[in-house]
Write a protein that binds this DNA or RNA. Structure first.
Lengths: 210, 210
DNA sequence: AGACTATCTGAACGATCGGTCGTTCAGATA
DNA sequence: TATCTGAACGACCGATCGTTCAGATAGTCT
């Protein structure tokens, strides 16, 4: 492949469009997202979209993929820098809360907005969302299993159930911080998981006290 | 007040419209809800709405109130039949899960759909949603405090934090049951809260073992 | 019977939706 | 230089959105 300035420009456009689309979708949802408003916010023409995507659904699918990559970079990768075991599990939870607190996405969480929107809308977009959610929970579960294998969590722990807990307590921080008390929401989300992990950990000193 | 057949008919219309609107909003959200589709599903004309509500927002506000009443009847009232304390707290959680599992609303949970939609949309509707959410959490908190006062929960328990836990673990059952595994989601939501309450209760035999 | 009122309808409105059209322009190719 | 291609544009399409309005229907009151 030789360097083609045209394709390079197109790729940059796609990137900025997708970034903006994920941000907007975190507020309005993927269906609530309107091509006209999206174009206006970026400062391009609406018809320009169709040089990159056949229709709105194609853009939605790419937006999901883009959001998954963003999630990986902001939450998964930083967590992998923590030592394996219970500390990595808690680092994952903290990275997620930081992602929310720093308002990386204007709507808080792309996946929360999109799950609530598509759980009753069959189609290709829903399928891709399901896949992303499944991979995410499987990843949490694998960290739990690793922590058990390392002897940093009780043997009796059900990995799927603890993964459900961590996911639920992290996700709930979004609406709580936006609709009620922001400081309290993040404090509760953090402390709940922390105390839960400490309670299940034979060596609680691996984790901060509070 | 004399009996007026017209007003009676109007009230019945309002009721069926609101019931349908809450159901539809649990799927599409309160903004995603379209008057045209709503009218078509009920079998009335679109313009008939405006005999009952000035505009769409007025209908949205009444829909929130209606959903709150439904929530009270289906979840709060049944829980109050359980003996005060930790058993009532768990009964509340179970009533909620039953409400979801029985698919009373086609979208699963009106408040989940609506929270994700309005956390970034200031206005009267958001204000009313915030109020409803606040009242709900305050109610859970009051049950926690009651259980502590009755000596059925450890003194050290932070009522606000435990309320956050119960709310988060219940709410998360909706997208999990719809997008991943329904049976597992409800099982996790139930067992997590159950084990948590048993762990905090000096007399665990008040609660079922599993 | 006639005046009045609440409910509901059908037709129409301006705005916006996703999407298509032909066209323009920059950059690559030969 | 001549030709081709990818990106982006403005104008426009039919459909649907929330909303308005004049009028029909039906139940109440004098």
């Amino acid at each position: 492949m030789t360097q083609d300035g045209r394709r390079l420009r197109g790729q940059r456009s796609r990137e900025t469009i997708l970034a903006q689309a994920v941000g907007l979708a975190s507020v309005e949802g993927l269906d609530g997202l309107s091509l006209g408003r999206l174009a206006a916010e970026i400062g391009i023409s609406k018809s320009g979209f169709f040089a990159h995507w056949r229709d709105k659904q194609e853009l939605q699918l790419d937006a999901v993929d883009w959001a998954v990559r963003q999630w990986r970079e902001h939450i998964v990768v930083p967590a992998l820098h923590a030592p394996a075991g219970v500390r990595r599990l808690f680092a994952l939870h903290q990275a997620r809360l930081r992602f929310y607190a720093e308002r990386v996405l204007p709507g808080g969480c792309f996946f929360l907005a999109v799950q609530a929107e598509f759980d009753d809308h069959p189609g290709a977009v829903r399928t891709r969302i399901v896949q992303a959610l499944h991979n995410w929970e499987a990843f949490i579960r694998s960290l739990v299993e690793e922590a058990i294998a390392l002897g940093e969590l009780d043997q009796g722990v059900d990995p799927a159930q603890l993964a459900y807990e961590i996911e639920a307590l992290g996700m709930a921080a979004v609406p709580h911080s936006r609709l009620l008390d922001e400081r309290l929401a993040f404090a509760h989300a953090r402390r709940t998981v922390l105390q839960r992990l400490r309670g299940l950990c034979p060596n609680p000193s691996l984790l901060p006290e509070d």
